[in-house]
Amino acid sequence: MATALRLVGVGLTATVLLVVLGQFQQRSVAMVVRVAAAVVLLLAILVPLAQVVAALGRMAALAHVRGLYLSLLLKVLGIAYLATLGAEVARDAGEGALAGKVELAGKVLILVLAVPVLTAIVQVLFKMIPG
């Protein structure tokens, strides 16, 4: 509960500071503060997220899921986390096209991670089909 209050407080403080900074001519100064606020909030979120990831690992061990698949899922989550941060920062700065490229890069990297699983599925399918 205290963490939630603290995070919302940081968000409100940063918002007020950014609105005041936006009145000046220097857009780049407000941009740096915006990036810092986003990074600080995401860094603070990672601590509770680590507990969720640990719980996921315990559940996967209970269900006898192969560690390879859980690790793959976590990698996809990490890439999505970072790519979303980069894309949102670029979009905030008015660089919508660059944001699209960052998101595309994240999608391609996730696809690269998914290819081995896809090939495994296709191989199993071909084994099931006789002839």
């Binding site: 995070l7 403080t13 940063a14 500071l17 900074l21 220097q26 740096v32 503060v33 600080v40």
Partner: peptide, 19 residues
């Protein structure tokens, strides 16, 4: 863990620079 000092410090430098 929440690093609000950084945001406040950055905003302070930003105010000084903008003014």
């Amino acid at each position: 863990m929440v690093n609000i000092d950084l945001i406040l410090r950055l905003a302070g430098i930003g105010f000084v620079v903008a003014i």
